[in-house]
Design a protein around this nucleic acid. Structure first.
Lengths: 104, 104
DNA sequence: GAATCACATAAGTGTGTGCTTATGTGTCTC
DNA sequence: GAGACACATAAGCACACACTTATGTGATTC
């Protein structure tokens, strides 16, 4: 169940921070670790969880592994959210119109 | 941190099921429990977590407590998602236009 | 090819979390 | 007002999970 993987992955604050960092530009695991007070294995494990959730994808470059945001995960969240658009508050009402295009 | 509460709340499959049931119509805790093989305290605890995340809200009616989807939680997810709209895949491209209205 | 580097995996540990049974609180019925 | 009912809270327990240190794997450098 990929949907479960996504929400479980985002339930951890450290992983959300990692994801946010990658959203500001792709980088490798070591660079990601800068200023995060986290061990190398911990980072590796977090990235594995984010990868399994399709929130992040890797691109091997020699001995480096470059990580970037995977649009698939975000799309799945958008789809999940779209199921409940009937309950969206008025100020996001405009979103309803746009989501119609997702119904096909 | 409400954002954390939201993702943590949705990380549990039982709570997602409860939320989905409520999205199909508000009901009280006992009715929610039907066909779910879950104890009464467990349901009460799950609802408390969903309430704290603002995904669900209560409406006391005598000795019954009616639960319904709280749009606030969904709006917060939408806002979180909007931050990463630069990475959305092309097939949800139309959403980008709609989300512009959320920027104000 | 030996050393170093970037990263992954293994194994162990403390804490969080979802469950249970037991009990408490407020409301309705008779 | 005594009982039943709907729900919340308390306390305890088993398991998941995020972390650590130690080690493995593959690529680069000299």
């Amino acid at each position: 169940m990929i949907e479960h993987d996504i929400f479980r992955a985002l339930a951890d604050p450290t992983r959300r921070t990692i994801f946010e960092k990658l959203a500001n530009g792709s980088m490798n695991a070591s660079t990601l670790r800068q200023g995060m007070d986290i061990s190398q294995p911990a980072m590796s494990q977090h990235l594995a969880v984010l990868r399994a959730a399709r929130l992040v994808r890797e691109q091997k470059e020699g001995r480096f592994v470059n990580y970037e945001v995977d649009p698939d995960g975000l799309a799945l969240i958008a789809q999940w959210l779209a199921k409940y658009r009937a309950y969206w508050p008025a100020r996001i009402d405009a979103l309803k119109l746009l989501l119609k295009d997702m119904d096909q």
